[in-house]
Amino acid sequence: MAAEIDDIIVSERSRDVQRKTFIRADNIFKAVIGFFAFLVIVILVWLGIQLYESSQLAFASGGIWRFIKGSTWDPVTGVFGALPFIYGTLLTSFLSLLIATPLGVGTAVFLAELAPKWLKRGLQPLVELLAGIPSVIYGLWGIFVLSPLMANTVEPFLMDRFGFLPFFTGYPLGIGFLTASIILAIMIVPFIISVSTEILSTVPVPLTEGMYALGATRWETLKKIALPYAKSGIFGSIVLALARALGETMAVTMVIGNTPQISKSLFDPGYTMSAVIANEFTEAASANYLSALIAIAFILLLVTLVVNAVARWLIWRTTRMK
């Protein structure tokens, strides 16, 4: 009897020890992953502070607002204003989203709901491949294929038919906001397709069957069940695409024309924040010039954060349950 009790006590004790080891392992694990998570924030904040400090010279005359609102960029006389670049980045990003969203969501719907299995299996890896192509290759294609096409066919056509709209006026150069936006759209559309297809494929079969059983057509089932169910994921894919569009440098630099101007016409050349940094960083001989470029980088960081935050807020607002 006593021996048995002893046994129990021993086993209790060893279990205690075991539990303590588990707890310790748990705590170590927690600390490690907590550190990694914290690191993300540290890097972001550090980056922001560094950029901000290095841009002080650019903000010195008149502060950050004056720099943002300045529409002249003249390194020769040392006048630096960021507005044309902010304009270029926002315009091309949103225009590309405007083109890519219907294209991407439409393709995703086709792949997830309508395409036969063999076609889906064939197309999906291709789409993912498209997302992985280095942007300089898109840029080259833009210069040698898209740009002539735009200059000779698309832009004259738009001018002819829609010339009464201010953004389809000017001279069809084939290099400018519109061409850059189209290149961007082609680059971001795979993200939208890929994620949205994945999300649409997760719509539970019982839900779609429930709708079919009520006498719904394919389109009605898609509209009333699948798309509302997948809404937040599709929005997510669009935000992901927007993030890429905002930061995309190489391909845009090659086709936007690199002219710091704010123009209503989409045919006109422009400039984006990332493009000006990449292009002029090596030429920035003076401290002022360098600081102005870093200030652009700082603003690009801010714009990216703000746009992402707004997009996320929009997702949250439209998808929260009633």
Binding site: P204, P206, L207, E209, G210, M211, Y212, A213, L214, G215, A216, T217, K224, I225, P228, Y229, K231, K322
Partner: peptide
């Protein structure tokens, strides 16, 4: 088939109310 299903309703094994609707 759409009209057939309108005339012949179906209740499924697992309750499947549409989660995005009231």
């Amino acid at each position: 088939p759409v009209l057939v299903r309108r005339k012949i309703g179906m209740v499924f094994q697992k309750p499947n109310p549409f989660p995005t609707m009231t």
